[in-house]
Design a protein around this nucleic acid. Structure first.
Lengths: 260, 260
DNA sequence: GTCTATTCTCGTATACCCTACGAGAATGAC
DNA sequence: GTCATTCTCGTAGGGTATACGAGAATAGAC
């Protein structure tokens, strides 16, 4: 049997770090011993800044320490391991989204409430494209993640579906928004970091059409290409694709609303 | 200006590897020099097997070489770098899906055709959960990726939408299916590899509800919890969630069909 | 002022990762 | 047998995370 109560395990330690800014803590004992030169928020901010500017790989323990002007091992005073640092970076970034809490003013319609979540999430991924390359199963359960879930669930709750279906609908919406927004941001960031546009990338694969592509095996792709169905690769085209998928998903969910 | 024609760049070399089994090649010159002990397909298969069994991290150059009983550097005879090996692993796995090509028998209705893609893709992710942790922007453009795209587009083509909308619809469908199936497989694999169920993982975070969770800031979550809206964490519940999202998305797309 | 308990700092070492280089082994052609 | 060619793979170099332990800084006791 796994322990059911707080036992000071690694998960409890991580939770304490995640909620450090919301929860007062038992009691502030008088400081003893050598004073720290940094604090946890500074370390997390440095990690985020580094990942934003130079990619997730640059946010190594060595990299973050150098950016802060301390030795690598000093970071381990503030964070038990790199894994926890990443969790803290993620939840902080999740919390950046300006989503109204319970009782605060919010858009009038269900769709606009979802669209607010969508806009805020896309902006978040644009600011922090490295987020897309972090697995979201078993995420850090910190204030940022919980606040976003609460908002999305509360938006879906107005549809009047069962509790089970409300949850499932919210899940489908996050799945689509988070992954589509992540892909979008990752693509834009790749264009910036490699200096190679999406079109240039395809041009580099000119040989594909020249040498390997078999029209007979790919008639639909060929037809869509001939009808110029692939769009022009601009940001606007990508935006339109994103909206199309989200709008259709919301259409489908809204159709379940009490058919009165 | 970037070069427009095949110039033997790194992209062309990767394409040649990806299409090695489809395309005969210019001419088979007589073998010269020492005979190789392996071939590329063996190396790729070993990489896939290792990633399947012990995770993507185990499919290191060292790990694959050891599994094949050769020195690490020997692999570089067959593959220019680890990046290419990964591309080859991915496209091979993408090609595993049994999706009918043009002219071959396929399910009668649009929805069943999409469902076939969904089933095959979910099974693929279940067999190869490491696939979920590989970025899909700028994927390997090999036979596996192209065949799947062709199938999905041909399924969407029967809706009678414009070429542009057909492509956009297919994009939305892959976005949902690929990410939801990836998450599902990643979660199942984590349960296997860590030996910790989803429920056990939440139990380990008992302190969250005990110490940190604020009911006033999360009324909807609380209400859904009290109404037992979160399901029981079983495979069936996850399956139901997956289907719900996909069905709603397909509902929304189908509603665009000529409203006759 | 000195001593001590406590805490923070961080150099060193270990165990991985990818891969550039180059020496040596195997092979077919002559 | 010699030679060009190709494959094999040990070594080395630069990257990653982090365990360990010596040393520095600080607060309070005396």
């Amino acid at each position: 049997m796994a322990e059911r109560h707080s036992g000071g395990g690694p998960a409890d330690r991580t939770l304490a770090l995640l909620w450090r800014n919301q929860h007062p803590g038992p009691a502030t004992k008088p400081p003893l011993g050598r004073r720290p030169t940094l604090d946890l928020n500074t370390v997390v901010d440095a990690g985020i800044a580094l990942a934003d500017e130079k990619g997730l790989a640059a946010a190594s323990m060595n990299g973050v320490a150098k950016a802060l002007g301390v030795g690598t091992m000093t970071l381990y005073t503030y964070v038990p391991s790199k894994e926890e640092l990443l969790d803290l970076m993620v939840d902080q970034v999740l919390a950046e989204r300006a989503l109204p809490g319970p009782g605060e003013p919010r858009p009038a319609t269900w769709r606009d409430q979802i669209n607010l979540y969508s806009d805020q999430t896309r902006a978040m991924f644009r600011r922090h494209p490295w987020l897309a390359s972090i697995s979201t199963i078993r995420p850090p359960v910190g204030p940022g993640m919980l606040a976003a879930r609460e908002y999305l669930l509360s938006a879906c709750a107005v549809l009047g579906l069962s509790a089970r279906q409300t949850n499932t609908a919210a899940l489908a919406i996050t799945t689509y928004i988070d992954s589509a927004a992540g892909l979008e941001a990752e693509s834009e960031q790749l264009e910036r970091s490699t200096g190679q546009s999406h079109d240039a990338w395809w041009n580099e694969r000119y040989d594909l059409w020249e040498t390997y592509f078999d029209v007979e095996r790919h008639p639909t792709m060929t037809a869509i290409w001939n009808a110029e169905g692939y769009g022009d690769g601009t940001r606007e085209a990508a935006d339109e694709s994103y909206r199309f998928g989200l709008d259709r998903l919301l259409d489908g969910i809204e159709a379940l609303r009490d058919p009165g």
